[in-house]
Design a binder for these strands. Structure first.
Length: 573
RNA sequence: CGGGGUGUGGCGCAGUCGGCUAGCGCGCAGCGUUUGGGACGCUGAGGUCGGAGGUUCAAGUCCUCUCACCCCGACCA
């Protein structure tokens, strides 16, 4: 490809709104352009990268036994109503009306469509297992797109759906995908970390995410160096410092004039925060819920939401709390009636807590669970934090910020039951098909690769996904010798099928080198009067600092070797 | 949805107390001189100042409404 003909220009300056590394570099290199919030055009260079990532993903899916197909973007809303997931997605669903006033959803994912399809095509256990996948554009009206390609509203996604006769079959399919994912990330030079995850709106039981550590990521996960434990904060559990466990003392009121927050109250009374109980109020699908949790622990809203089986959960406003007759600042589960109380496990294991008294400027000392109050539900709704103790091995937990580059789910049978996807087993009994689904955001993957492979000069594409492998860079293009040598090289490399970006522009060396670095093409080949004087060309890998002079007649061989060597390397990173 | 911010050529920005023809840098086009890490000179093209309404002799500048985008939060496979 001649650079002079390539559509898309590198930018000297970039829009101020770009704040993540990948967003900046993809804009500066002229590879993407934003059309609206979370909606991007991929220019030719980016599209080549996308194509290469897709090819790797496709290859791994096929190797695992997947069959590719394509499904509609436009999906009747009734299909979503059947599974109830129109509510789970809520406003995240892009919808529109056709001329007959029928409502359609722009597919945010395709479990409904594929399950409907499979229900039609599968009747017998002999038809199972089945792995079907698609690589398509999906739509989600995210409340806040961000980070360039990290979180968008229109995105290319690979989704594979597995269909098995039973849980054991599902476990096998799940393992196959786990394996395929590991391979594919390795091929893309991404050090992906497998973590336990919450399954969110999609439902189901087991779920894992693949994360890549990056400050541009929007997920936090907790992990342990001692063992393999790693989980999204939404899901993570931890062992907290113990509260005291002594003989319960008689409860007594104490005056706490003007002290409301846990910090203030524990300070004033000289009691550690873990010996206090705090009250937090949520509105779960319009119902006010009282949360009792130890003062030093935060509520994990994901756990709470799952526990309450609600679709909408938010913190209650002060007026809503007051309307329920509760004294904000001194709220207490003690003596409370007619309000659902959810207690974190932490409140049941300690003794003699300080809690509110439901009376202004007053708290209660020596409050004990069971004796002084009871909860409707007791469960783990605590947020795990770095520094706490690992639930598996007793080590110290750490936390990291990351980009979610893959999410896999054991769905089970709830979708097949709702959509009538049943099969007849060997003994002639009708059973629901057991499902799994396995997603990867292709564009986000590209952004993640940039996040993890760059320097202050620009992108450093791994050979496996680079838009071109060789950046052919003649200097002093008014020099006929240079042009001739470069054109010969170009022809020979093209003949070998190597993808070459030929910088045929009459620009100064500085501009050419800087563009080469910015675009991140793995191998730069410089031809100039200086190199030709020695009958050579200069080779430089984007990953390396130093350059190497190679005789003209050996150049093609050497380039070929460098390209295939690094490509092979990258598969095992 | 709550909080904060920004909208002026393709990109980055300036524009005072309302004042006359809306500027600068980059990029773009032409010519010439240059050239191993973003050269220089000259010439030139390119603008509904986000939009609507208002105040005024006069609005990029003031007022009202509105739209878009960004950041934090909520939210989010």
């Amino acid at each position: 490809m001649l650079l002079s003909k390539l559509f898309g220009k590198t930018q000297r300056e970039i829009p101020a709104e770009a704040d993540t590394v990948s967003h900046r570099l993809l804009l500066k290199s002229g590879m993407i352009r934003q059309l609206a919030a979370g909606i991007y055009t991929y220019l030719p260079l980016a599209w080549r990268v996308i194509g290469k990532i897709e090819a790797i993903v496709r290859d791994e899916m096929n190797k695992a036994g997947g069959q590719e197909l394509s499904m509609p973007v436009l999906q009747p809303i009734e299909l979503w109503q059947k599974t109830g997931r129109d509510l789970a997605f809520g406003k995240g669903l892009f919808t529109l009306y056709d001329r007959k006033e029928r409502q359609l959803a722009m597919g945010p994912t395709h479990e409904e469509v594929i399950t409907e399809l499979v229900s039609y095509n599968v009747q017998s256990y002999r038809d199972l297992p089945l792995l079907l996948y698609q690589i398509q554009t999906k739509f989600r009206d995210e409340p806040r797109p961000r980070g360039g390609l990290i979180r968008v509203r229109e995105f290319i996604m690979k989704d594979l759906y597995s269909f098995d006769a039973d849980d054991e079959g599902l476990a096998q399919s799940y393992d196959k995908m786990l394996n395929a994912y590991r391979n594919l990330y390795a091929r893309c030079c991404l050090p992906a970390i497998l973590i336990e995850a919450d399954s969110g709106a999609i439902g189901g039981k087991d779920s894992h995410e693949f994360m890549v550590i990056s400050e541009s990521g929007e997920d936090e996960f907790i992990y342990c160096d001692g063992c393999k434990y790693a989980a999204n904060v939404e899901k993570a559990t931890s062992v907290k410092d113990k509260a005291e466990s002594k003989q319960p003392l008689p409860a007594e009121e104490v005056a706490t004039p003007g002290y409301q927050s846990i910090g203030e109250v524990s300070n004033f009374l000289g009691v550690p925060a873990r010996q206090t109980l705090k009250a937090v109020f949520y509105i779960a699908d319009k119902e006010l819920v009282f949360i009792a949790i130890r003062g030093d622990i935060e509520v994990n809203e994901t756990k709470l939401k799952n526990l309450l089986h609600c679709t909408e959960l938010r913190m209650a406003g002060e007026d809503e709390i007051r309307a329920a007759g509760i004294v904000a600042g001194s709220a207490s589960p003690v003596g409370l009636k007619d309000i659902k109380i959810v207690a974190d496990e932490s409140v049941t294991s300690g003794t003699n807590f300080v809690a509110g008294a439901n009376k202004a400027d007053t708290h209660l000392k020596n409050v004990n669970y069971n004796r002084d109050f009871k909860a409707n539900i007791v469960a783990d709704i605590a947020l795990a934090r770095a520094g706490e103790v690992c639930p598996r091995c007793g080590g110290r937990l750490l936390s990291a910020q990351g980009i979610e580059i893959g999410h896999i789910f054991k769905l089970g049978t709830f979708l097949s039951e709702k959509l009538g996807a049943y099969y007849i087993d060997a003994s002639g009994i009708s059973r629901p098909i057991v499902m799994g689904c396995y997603g990867i955001g292709i564009g986000r993957l590209m952004a993640a690769i940039v996040e993890l492979n760059h320097d202050d000069k620009g992108i450093i594409w791994p050979m496996s996904v680079a838009p071109y492998l060789v950046y052919l860079c003649p200097l002093y293009t008014e020099n006929d010798e240079v042009v001739k040598a470069a054109e010969n090289l170009y022809a020979e490399l093209e003949k070998l099928g190597l993808e070459v970006l030929f910088d045929d522009r009459t620009e100064s060396p500085g501009i050419k080198f800087n563009d080469a670095d910015l675009l991140g093409i793995p191998l730069r080949v410089t031809v100039s009067p200086r190199t030709l004087e020695k009958g050579s060309v200069e080779l430089k890998l984007r990953t390396e600092k130093n350059t190497e002079l190679v005789p003209l007649d050996a150049a093609v061989e050497k380039i070929k070797k460098l390209v295939s060597d690094t490509q092979a390397d990258s598969q095992f990173t």
